[in-house]
Write a protein that binds this DNA or RNA. Structure first.
Lengths: 341, 341
DNA sequence: TTGAAAGCGATACCAC
DNA sequence: GTGGTATCGCTTTCAA
């Protein structure tokens, strides 16, 4: 059995309260006594029992808020699951988590919920933010009150949030390039379809893909980025058009939504499985298209972690006063084929 | 705040002890009272607080043993890390974990350690077993005493272990095939290098690879499996020989150790990065060869999980009396390129 | 069959 | 500055 506070107190000939204060720098301990206690703790290899701590802390509940947007999307549903799982774990500890979810993209709603959560007395916030200046300002205002804010899934880098949890789109784009380069023949052509040209994540995924492809596979011709506005119907048309004008198309990089449109176009042309398609996110539809061979490889963003980790970060901030080590807390990039779903 | 045992006791007008006995079927409670208590718990949505439980249980320590073999290998070192991490978490709860490690493959040593742990009074065992009939018999003997045994990393399927935690070699082989088929040109040739023809994992990885390749890429010629006895030097020679006799070699599947030998041969021939190499396990050397482009894709076996999960399974067995749901508890198959390490 | 009470390890508040 | 003490939620004797 590991040594406990009580044992250290006995060895030092002081009370447990004093040991606690000394070891956790809570003050009100004379320097000499504190030093001696720390010395003993060191010698005995004292490590606080997290279970005991959690239970003791559970009298003083701390309350945090979570705001999720685009709840209708499959990815955000997984993110939400992760957040709920975290909330459940933390409930057993000392944290209460208040959820607010918004459908699609709605800055006004997010701001309203922020006010609501603030009024409910939350001491920390995790938010999947809409890319909107007003939301950004609001977050800065909240952060100014000393309330830690964590962004997840999407970031507002210019805001005063303490950290961001989500995908590294630059690496994701390069990962896609690395795979594409290994899968298409020299002198093949590769098309890029993205969601919105104005979306930061989408832009980065394409820019990095393109840059990396030029570096590692200069002989492969990269066609210009085509936005499909995250719509399958547009993606389908775009793909059909591409197939028409470009005989030697060897691969399609789908940086955002619209994946199924691409797959349908390929299927209609009898080309599914013949071209290499790299796309993002494990959604039911994508899984289907992966299984049927239309999508070659999916790049996944560990959506569950994106919901789970922000709450753990808030716990560390609020309970153990440990700020996150990194401002950018990237969730891993995982690769899925039909064989390792 | 969630409802507690105490609150339920108040509502039911009985003591906490009675509620506890009723809800956890510990007996010594009249059926009517038990029914009423369960009813109330249901209504109130009672869920036991895991932190409270863990703390209360920590007075009665339970002891388990872990035996690791082939400790000199990079993979097993990672497995060991996972086990140590689990031990640390469990220490805060109610479990003491005794470790025994053996270098290379040594059935006699494993058996000696099994006896040692038994003598130390372990109530559960996790073991990375040597494939040896005596070890198998010993495990059966232990299981016969009612001590749950979990195998990990390698299995003894014919033994009475309650479950196995490790890689699904069949799926791993097929995953490799899926990738290889997408990366090599039609009519290319693919070589297979394995460790030992007698090793079950190695054999399965190759057989499944081959079977799947024939199914999805019948035009690709698969060369016969060559064992390199897990040695880089042999793998190097084998690869050089292959390159000599086979001009249109497009890929090499390395099912076991010897990866670096393959990479060196390719490098010497100026072919690193030109051929597709699929290999197993994230080891420092493999990471290096992946970064330098000699290895195309690594299939990883989540070695950490293989050490971590067996101990959690033992905890569930011994503390909450929840047997594992699955006999084969496969750790995920993850794919790594130089971009998503 | 039931209740009362001690205790797991840590925290926090209140006296002194 | 320091010690004493109640408490978190649950388990487990020990009496009754």
């Amino acid at each position: 059995m590991a040594v406990t506070l009580k044992q250290i107190a006995e060895i030092a000939g002081v009370s447990r309260g004093t040991v606690d204060r000394a070891l956790h720098n809570r003050g009100r301990v004379s320097p000499e006594v504190a030093a001696r206690i720390r010395q003993i703790a060191q010698e005995q290899g004292y490590e606080p029992n997290e279970v005991g701590r959690a239970l003791a802390r559970s009298r003083k509940q701390t309350r945090v808020g979570v705001i999720l947007q685009s709840m209708e999307t499959p990815t955000m549903k997984i993110v939400a699951e992760g957040a709920r799982a975290a909330a459940k774990t933390l409930q057993n500890q000392s944290m209460e988590v208040l959820f607010r979810t918004v459908e699609s993209v709605n800055a006004a709603q997010e701001i309203a919920y922020l006010d609501e959560l603030l009024a409910a007395g939350v001491q920390g916030l995790a938010i999947a933010p809409v890319d909107d200046a007003r939301v950004c300002r609001k977050l800065d205002e909240i952060a100014g009150q000393g309330i830690p804010v964590v962004t997840f899934n999407a970031d507002l880098p210019q805001s005063k949030r303490i950290c961001f949890v989500g995908q590294d789109n630059d690496r994701a784009g390069r990962t896609a390039a690395g795979l594409m380069a290994m899968m298409v023949p020299k002198n093949g052509k590769v098309a890029q379809i993205t969601g919105h040209l104005t979306n930061d994540a989408h832009r980065t995924r394409c820019a990095s893909f393109q840059e990396e492809m030029q570096k590692i596979a200069p002989d492969v011709e990269i066609l210009p980025v085509q936005p499909c506005f995250d719509r399958d119907s547009y993606a389908l048309e775009l793909t059909q058009h591409l197939l028409g004008i470009c005989q030697d198309l060897a691969g399609i990089y789908v940086a955002a939504n619209g994946q199924h449109g691409v797959c349908e176009a390929l299927r209609a042309a009898g080309l599914d499985g013949k071209l290499r398609v790299i796309a993002y996110d494990i959604t039911p539809q994508n899984i289907e298209d992966l299984k049927q061979g239309a999508i070659s490889i999916l790049i996944d963003q560990k959506a569950r972690d994106q919901g789970y980790r922000p709450l753990m970060i808030l716990r560390d901030c609020l309970i153990t006063h440990t700020p996150p080590k990194e401002t950018f807390c990237y969730t891993g990039i995982t690769l899925k084929t039909r064989y390792n779903l």
